[in-house]
Design a protein around this nucleic acid. Structure first.
Length: 112
DNA sequence: AGTATGACATATA
DNA sequence: ATATATGCCATAC
């Protein structure tokens, strides 16, 4: 397997439970800035069977990438809700559940 | 080699 | 909020 794929999978696996990240953020974290599409491609292949929190990856605007109503859409919604992420109309508020928000808390000590 | 197609992103209009 | 327009690049024909 390509080294790039490995780093992408690692970046996805590193998303803490109850939080989400965008494809672009994952790409950047994997050392592949500007290559968000590659993240989707990798998730598309190897999701079946492996313990990867693929459902924590969303579009940059906080929307689920799957077609509303599709199987993937429903499954992602369920899995996110199962760990406390609020999903409404296929949208998640990144300000609340995104990684950057966690960074703000760590840097500024903003209480929950 | 050339074209088309994505679990995308950003910038405009 | 919707709609193009580019940029991106691995895959599949």
């Amino acid at each position: 397997m390509k080294e790039e794929y490995r780093r992408i999978l690692q970046a996805v696996a590193a998303i803490p439970p109850g939080r989400v990240a965008s494809y672009g953020q994952i790409a950047a974290r994997a050392g592949l800035p500007g290559r968000a599409r590659m993240v989707g491609k990798v998730l598309g292949y190897r999701t079946e069977g492996m313990k990867l929190p693929w459902f924590r990856v969303l579009r940059a605007d906080g929307r689920i990438a799957f077609e509303p109503g599709s199987r993937g859409f429903r499954e992602q919604t369920e899995r996110l809700r199962a760990e406390g992420v609020v999903v409404q109309n296929g949208r998640i508020r990144m300000q609340e559940f995104g990684l950057d928000h966690d960074l703000d808390r760590e840097l500024w000590g903003i209480p929950d």
